[in-house]
Design a protein around this nucleic acid. Structure first.
Lengths: 206, 206
DNA sequence: AAACATATCTTGACAATGTTAAGATTCGTT
DNA sequence: AACGAATCTTAACATTGTCAAGATATGTTT
C-alpha cells in the first residue's frame, strides 16, 4: 500500500497526510529548497491546484510539517527523560536526545529551523509546538537549579539558553554540513555528543 | 554614486561586485529565499542573462557572498583578539565576536550557513574561507589547553567543538528567529552573550 | 429517495523564475 | 586597423506558485 500514489477515486481520501509525507520524502532527496509544491502534487497523484484545498500555500505545508516535527521532538524528550530520576542525568539525556533527533530527522530539523521566509515563527501553531518541546529543558533546569529563578530570573534564562545553544549549535553544525564537511576526524556524531555533554556546562553561573 | 543603478555604458564596469552588493540588499529585504537572480539583474540595470558571465549560476553568486562573509568574520576575529594577551580573555572575545557578527550581519550568516541546496560546503573556496575563520578558535584553545592535543586529540576537538557549538547555537537561535520570537524576556542579545559566556564552558574535559 | 450545500479535485490560465543559445557591442592586444 | 576575447542583450524554454471557474463526489436535510 504505497502512500505515495494516487487512489482511483476522484476524492483522494487522505490527501493532506499524503502531501506531508511526500513533502518530507522530496526534501530528503532534493533538499529543502528543491522542494516543489507541483511535484509533490504530481507524486501524490493529484493536480497542481489540489494542495490548495488543504494548505493555504506552500509555506503552510511546511509549517504543518514543522509542527509535526516539534511534536516528535517533544515526544522523544518526554520518553527519554521518563527513565531517569536524577535531574543531572536528565539534562544530558535531553541534550543527547535533541541532537540525535536532528541527526536522525535531518529533514524535520531543516523545516523546523531553516524555514525559508522565516514566517514559520509567526505561525502560532509552530510557536506553541516549539515551546512545548522546549519545556522539558526548562523544567529539568528548574529541578537542577531552583535558586536560579530568584531575582530577575536572568540566571535561569541564561542556563536554559546555554544548554539550548550548545545542543542546537552542535545539531546545526551537523545538519548544515560544516561539521560533516570538515571531516572532524573520524569522530562519529554519537561520540561527539558524549564528548561535548561530558563537559560541565553550567558549572556555576557568573 | 549609487552602486545599485546602471551605468550608461554597454559594459557595466564592475558588475560582479554590484551583483553581490544588490544580492545582499535584496536578501536583507526579502529573506534569503525571496532572493531572485532576475531581480538582482534588474536592480543592477542589466539583462537577466548578464550575471551568467560572472557566476556559473544562482548558487555560485551565493557562494561568492559566503566567501566574503567568512573573510569578514575572519577579519573580525583577528582584529578583536589582537588586543588581548590573556588566552582566556581571547576565548570570550572570540565568542562575543562570532555571535555579534551573526547579529550584525544576519544576511551573511544566512548565506554562509543556510545555503539552500547546501552544496556551498562542497565549494572549496567556501570551505577554505570557513576553515580560516575557524582557525582563531582552534589556536586560542591550543594556547589555553596545550595538553588537550595529547593522545588522539579528541579532547582538543571536543573543546573546539564545544565552544563552536555554543556560539553557533546562540547565533543560530537568534538569526533563525526562535530566540527573538520567544521574546526571552527583555534580554538584549549583548547581555545574553555576556551571560552565556560568563559561564565556565570547558571547565574540565571528561 | 431527492435535492442541495459543502468539500474536494481538475482544467486552464497568469506572471515570474533559472537557464541557455545566438547574436550584438565593447575592450585589449597585436 | 584588425582580430579575439570579454561582456552584455534578446529571445526562448521548461517550471514554478497561485488563482478563478468549473466538475465531481460526499453528506445532510427534507
Amino acid at each position: 500500500m504505497a502512500e505515495t500514489g494516487r487512489t482511483d477515486k476522484y476524492h483522494h481520501g487522505d490527501l493532506r497526510q499524503t502531501l506531508m509525507n511526500n513533502c518530507l520524502k522530496m526534501i530528503e532527496e532534493k533538499g529543502v529548497s528543491g522542494f516543489t509544491l507541483r511535484e509533490v502534487a504530481r507524486i501524490s497523484g493529484v493536480s497542481p491546484a489540489a494542495p490548495y484545498h488543504h494548505f493555504k500555500n506552500k509555506t503552510e505545508l511546511l509549517a504543518a510539517v514543522a509542527v509535526m516535527g516539534f511534536k516528535m521532538l517533544d515526544e522523544a524528550q518526554r520518553k527519554e527523560t521518563e527513565k531517569c530520576d536524577n535531574p543531572g542525568a536528565k539534562l544530558k539525556v535531553l541534550g543527547r536526545s535533541y541532537v540525535m533527533f536532528a541527526v536522525n530527522h535531518k529533514v524535520y530539523f531543516h523545516v523546523m529551523f531553516r524555514a525559508n521566509p522565516e514566517p514559520l515563527w509567526e505561525n502560532t501553531q509552530v510557536m506553541n509546538a516549539a515551546k512545548q518541546a522546549l519545556s522539558h529543558l526548562e523544567n529539568t533546569i528548574r529541578e537542577l537549579y531552583p535558586e536560579a529563578e530568584k531575582g530577575n530570573g536572568n540566571h535561569f534564562k541564561a542556563a536554559v539558553l546555554t544548554c539550548w545553544s550548545m545542543v542546537h549549535g552542535l545539531a546545526s553544525l551537523w545538519v548544515d554540513g560544516p561539521l560533516r564537511a570538515a571531516e572532524s576526524g573520524k569522530l562519529e556524531i554519537e561520540k561527539l555528543i558524549d564528548l561535548i555533554l561530558g563537559q560541565d556546562i553550567i558549572h556555576r553561573g557568573s
